[in-house]
Design a protein around this nucleic acid. Structure first.
Length: 915
RNA sequence: GGGCGCUUAGCUCAGUUGGGAGAGCAUCGCCCUUACAAGGCGAGGGUCACAAGUUCAAGUCUUGUAGCGCCCA
């Protein structure tokens, strides 16, 4: 083996090898009883791999690789999402550099351009995934706009339409005036922003009275159709039924009563603008008010308003309207006000409630079974508290607006005749049959919300509506791994559509991961300039490039400066290269529940060191075993039995933690076993064992067996380094060229659990630790061999000493071990205890007497504290009577052993102090 | 306003039927001991946010308070 661990070389080697060797294929293990499947949440084709992806992909890969090694037929289904709005925006932005708009090209040419762009740069994320080692079945890669998936989309649309679950209607929708499309509720982000509350005086018709209405959007008054007051409001009751002279528009509008009005807020009078506010729309419906739309689709004032304001942008109009009102002395006052401003999640422009014709999914009938599926346990959220979030949303769900006025996506399968009649069909031919011959039909211009096709992903990728073998083998999928941010967008809709169209849930478990944040707990975002690119953690990046990357395309130079300073402070030397395995280990180690993850480079460094440790340990093993014949029937020492027993415990733990979705605990268990049990203890034990012809064969057998099995256990987390070590290991044993990735999972072997060996080795470790402690605290060089005397030993102690003399003298560097009888007088010594047994190291010029006194005092103090705790507890009658017998007995034992140790140490202290 | 988290060692975090507070990193000693200095050996460090309650026993259960964060309206 190479002397140093070099992740770059190793990773390069296996990336291709696995894929070319067909090791990711879902066709393997096809005769097995069980199957396992995961669908990859399809990333946007526009996207590149970010930390969240890398994190979730690592988790999915762990499960995929694990299940493969368990012998299950395993599919990890990859693919990408066409991401309608996002992708269209990317391509439009590129065209705009050449001063071309999509309208210049026309629909057909434009979509061609998008396809062109997709084939050119849509593969970024796939190649980045390959760097991570994600073992998806690349041969089955799908795209949401593939023909077969589009067919599924049309089928679902048509069936829902035929059942009345999709309808077309003129409704108030969320309108993005920049994109010129409707968007769904979920695509609107409302945030509190500071603004004003304008109090406007409305004059009551045929009266000198005025009512004051307060609004945050004065320009909408052009579309007012009423003023509303609360029916119980004493102040205004008498005015209900009268009219207002609406300023600026010269219209009369009624005063109505509706209990939606909050008497306490403002003056208790509210202007009602049904065309431009969702609540006002409801009130308008209740009272049969006129719906007066005063905006164009790009949010300018339209021809329904007085000519003075027509064609003004909505914000421009606001200013002029306020000025005009002031001129007429109709502004009562203007207050500063915090208000919720709805913005489009893509454009960040302010969303308008806007009357348009759109397609909707009637969601309630779909939501009910989807709620049941979680309630009755067919689907399980992990961690389960997310089900509350799910229920909360599902129980209050509104109809889903699915049409988008853009070009990139699945075109709605509906055709119109000249009179506006429409025919929903799979193709123009089918629509024509419905419409009758010689009727001219044109297809709906709109496309479907991207999430409509995503909702079908778990079954459309498996060939639905065809009854494919994949579908019956892999559906429902085993687990969905995703973030909480798309529970509504995606997860809920998959459940609804899955149940509706396959009659079964799309997945059994939903593992909701935490969010990866930066080292300061901030959400990573491009605008904050705190984004880490997983590829940079793998390859490393120098400071200049990192600065460049983080400030690229920054509009504000000030912000760029700030980001540069932050970055310089956090990464003064850039980011070193850690390799993929270290990153993956970090992700699994951080994957605990209920918490966002502050990503800490120090952790990555630690796990890179772990890889290095594993590398070196393997090197030690393989160097010692090179060209040796392993005797599978060799006799095992207690050290061998011990590590094998520990390994069986580990296997149980690994599987339990996997089934609990506790990859953090799984990683920790593996880390501890490899570093502390195997390297710190067993490899040290092996050194004397290998020197002794009696124990050599057993040790060699154990070294390689434990190494190989541990590699399989580690492989799902750190596939590259383990594959490489395994290859080396196969080579020196002249074994076949099998790949680790397809080695069967080593099930725990009952006959290898060995309590006796564990007792003995724990004794041995305590002995060695006792000596090391004396050395450490007395600053005795580890090289200096020490004489050692044993007193007050049991028969078992004596047996252990005899069978471990060589190990003890080698590892604890003892040049003699002599047993003293109880009445033998020992020299002035430092002491260590293993149970009742005393280990004595003569001071004899080596150890300072005062240092040993201090050490003993410190130890005694600790024990006294413990002792008083225990005796207080046992002195409490309530405890002795109330606690279970076993607990009391346990406590008594602890007290006794503390007292005995204390007694020994006090005696020893007295002894050396008197000399 | 409703809901969900979080608060444990200097830092990042584990702690799953309530029973003597843990890890990694950082810190302080000693050591370049032939697998590993990306390392070895040893040490120090915590009124588990606060308050009350349940209990023989609370980091763990209940309630309340404070701070931080997220989601929904």
């Amino acid at each position: 083996m190479e002397k140093t661990y070099n992740p770059e070389l190793i990773e390069q080697k296996y990336r291709d090898l696995w894929e070319k060797g067909d090791h990711f294929s879902s066709g393997a293990n096809s005769s097995s009883k069980d199957s396992f499947s995961i669908v990859l949440p399809p990333p946007n084709v526009t996207g590149s791999l970010h930390m969240g992806h890398a994190f979730q992909h690592t988790i999915m890969d762990v499960y995929t690789r694990y299940n493969r090694s368990k012998g299950n037929q395993t599919l990890w289904q990859p693919g990408t999402d066409h991401a309608g709005i996002a992708t269209q925006m990317v391509v439009e932005r590129q065209l705009s550099l050449e001063n071309i708009s999509r309208h210049d090209l026309g629909r057909e040419k434009f979509t061609e351009k998008v396809w062109e762009w997709k084939s050119k740069s849509g593969g970024t994320i796939s190649s980045q995934m390959r760097r991570l080692g994600t073992s998806v079945d690349w041969n089955r890669e799908r795209f949401t706009m593939d023909e077969s998936l589009s067919l599924a989309v049309r089928k679902v649309f048509i069936e829902l339409y035929n059942e009345g679950l999709i309808y077309r209607g003129k409704r108030l929708v969320n309108w993005d005036p920049e994109l010129l499309t409707a968007v769904s509720d979920l695509e609107v982000i409302s945030k509190e922003e500071s603004g004003y509350l304008w109090h406007i005086k409305y004059q009551v018709d045929n009266s000198d009275k005025t009512l004051v209405v307060a609004t945050t959007r004065p320009e909408t008054m052009l579309g007012d159709s009423a003023v509303a007051v609360h029916p119980d409001d004493q102040r205004y009751q008498h005015l209900v039924g009268q009219f207002i002279n609406l300023p600026l528009s010269n219209r009369k509008i009624p005063i109505i009563a509706d209990d939606y009005v909050d008497m306490e807020f403002g003056t208790g009078c509210v202007k009602i603008t049904p065309a431009h506010d969702f609540n006002d729309y409801e009130i308008g419906q209740r009272h049969g008010l006129e719906i007066i739309n005063v905006l164009t689709n790009d949010a300018k004032i339209n021809s329904n308003a007085p000519s003075k304001y027509q064609d003004l942008d909505r914000f421009e109009a606001r200013k002029i309207i306020v000025a005009d009102l002031e001129k007429q002395n109709l502004i009562d006052k203007i207050d500063s006000h915090m208000l919720m401003v709805p913005r489009g999640d893509r454009t960040n422009s302010i969303i308008e409630p806007y009357m348009t014709d759109q397609w909707f999914v009637k969601v309630k009938p779909l939501a009910d079974p989807a709620i049941d599926a979680v309630k009755n346990g067919s689907i399980r959220f992990v961690p389960e508290n997310w089900e509350k979030t799910y229920f909360n949303w599902m129980e209050n769900i509104e109809d889903w607006c699915i049409s988008r006025q853009i070009w990139w996506g699945h075109r709605i399968p509906a055709w119109y005749d000249k009179d506006g009649n429409y025919f929903v069909a799979d193709s123009l031919e089918d629509a024509q049959i419905q419409a009758g011959k010689n009727i001219e039909l044109t297809q709906d211009d709109d496309v479907l919300d991207t999430w409509f096709s995503s909702a079908l992903w778990p079954f459309s990728t498996l060939g639905w509506p065809e009854e494919t073998t994949e579908l019956s083998r892999f559906y429902p999928t085993s687990v969905l791994v995703t973030g909480f941010d798309i529970i509504f967008f995606w997860v809920a809709r998959m459940i609804m559509f899955g149940l509706k169209f396959t009659g079964d849930v799309p997945f059994r478990d939903i593992y909701i991961t935490g969010l990866i944040k930066d080292g300061n707990g901030q959400k990573m975002s491009k605008s904050k300039g705190n984004v880490l690119d997983p590829i940079d953690l793998i390859d490393g990046i120098n400071l200049e490039e990192l600065l460049e990357k983080r400030t690229q395309g920054m509009m504000q130079p000030k912000l760029a400066e700030k980001i540069k300073n932050q970055t310089k402070k956090e990464f003064p030397n850039g980011i070193p290269s850690f390799g993929t395995d270290a990153i993956r280990f970090t992700f699994t180690a951080l994957a605990s529940f209920g918490r966002d993850i502050k990503f800490d480079l120090k952790r990555v460094e630690g796990y890179r060191n772990f890889c290095n440790k594993l590398w070196n340990a393997s090197r030690f093993v393989l160097m010692n075993l090179e060209s040796k014949k392993i005797d599978d029937n060799a006799e095992l020492s207690n050290q061998d039995k011990w590590i094998l027993s520990r390994l069986q415990h580990l296997k149980i733990q690994v599987q339990k933690y996997l089934s609990d979705y506790r990859l953090d605990l799984m990683s920790q268990a593996l880390y501890e076993f490899v570093w502390h049990d195997y390297c710190d203890w067993y490899l040290e034990f092996s050194k004397p064992l290998l020197e002794n012809s009696q124990t050599k064969d057993g040790c060699e057998l154990t070294l390689i067996k434990v190494l190989n099995e541990t590699l399989i256990l580690l492989h799902p987390i750190i596939p590259f380094i383990t594959e490489e070590i395994f290859e080396q290991s196969q080579k020196i044993q002249s074994k076949s060229n099998d790949k680790l990735i397809s080695q069967p999972f080593p099930e725990s072997q009952d006959e290898l659990f060995d309590d006796n060996a564990e007792v003995e080795i724990n004794w041995l470790k305590d002995f060695i630790l006792g000596i090391r402690k004396i050395r450490g605290e007395m600053n005795i060089s580890p090289k200096k061999p020490l004489p050692c005397f044993i007193k007050n030993f049991s028969i078992q102690d004596k047996g252990f000493i005899n069978s471990n003399t060589l190990t003890l003298s080698t590892i604890a560097k003892l040049d003699s071990i002599d047993l003293l009888s109880l009445d033998d007088e020992e020299d002035e010594s430092a002491i260590a205890l293993v149970g009742e047994m005393k280990i004595l190291i003569p001071l004899a010029g080596l150890i300072d007497k005062r240092a040993e006194q201090e050490r003993l005092n410190k130890e005694i103090e600790k024990l006294l504290k413990l002792k008083s705790q225990f005796s207080a507890k046992l002195g409490n009658e309530k405890f002795v009577n109330g606690a279970p017998e076993e607990v009391v007995r346990n406590e008594k034992e602890k007290l006794a052993s503390t007292e005995s140790t204390l007694n020994d140490l006090e005696q020893q202290l007295k002894k050396i102090s008197n000399l």
